[in-house]
Nucleic acid binder design. Structure first.
Lengths: 125, 125
DNA sequence: TTGGAATTACGAAACTCTTCGTATATTTGA
DNA sequence: TCAAATATACGAAGAGTTTCGTAATTCCAA
């Protein structure tokens, strides 16, 4: 099975669908356009291409189509990370984690959650 | 200041320069060509473009130029991560870390190193 | 009912990235 | 010395992405 790798623009649209649920092109466009200059037909075309690639499906029963993400957020995130880990971090997830932790400030609560996850991972072994 | 975002091919070349130190086009090409089909002039062109972008500098004192990375590995890794964290993980490094840890098998030693890093981070607060 | 607004479909331009062929210059060794 | 090997420069093709204009269709409100 072919791995679907969303482009950057496609990811923007997927995020909107993940966060807002199924959307019309108009709805997606309004959100995109609130962050940057973009024409309506550009948004439309992107979503049509995503449909062609199988990244989204759409309900065509009424004239105004309703789009739904076909990739889960979790899966897409994993794909992105796998690629980075492979390409940039020599396949070492730990290297990536340490670079991320060293660079970014995480809140106490977040650090606690991460430690908890680490303990669970160790117990599983 | 403009952020330099290496493309995938450019990253391949940077990695060679980071690991092997300064290189001629020929040296870089030999390493690239051991992993995939690629013509010499392709490698040359890529490195010329990288030079134009300021990703590398080169010593032109002899006919055969010697290229040197101008971005550090650490900085490039941080840039890649920052972008992903911003684009995909809503700005939360912790979300990225958890996705990475949940997905990939890290060795005990790696997990230990990560826990240690977490402790250091907590003590710093 | 009908004209304007909204929607989809489609083609093509502009841009970036990757690739390589060809031209030109330099070095080298037989 | 001078032909072959090696190097750089450069242009351009091909693929993928992003952008939008235009045409055709459908819907809705006056």
């Amino acid at each position: 099975m072919k791995v679907l790798k969303p482009t950057e623009s496609e990811l923007d649209i997927l995020k909107i669908l993940w966060e807002n649920g199924d959307c019309t092109v108009r709805q997606v466009h309004e959100i995109l356009a609130s962050n940057k200059e973009i024409g309506y037909t550009t948004t439309l075309k992107l979503m049509q291409i995503m449909h062609g690639k199988g990244l989204v499906e759409r309900d065509e029963s009424s004239k105004t189509h309703i789009y739904k993400a076909l990739v889960s957020r979790d899966k897409a995130e994993k794909q992105v990370l796998n690629k980075i880990i492979k390409d940039v971090f020599d396949g070492s997830a730990a290297r990536l984690v340490m670079q991320a932790l060293g660079n970014h400030q995480a809140s106490d609560a977040e650090l606690e959650k991460i430690k908890q996850l680490l303990n669970e991972l160790e117990n599983k072994k």
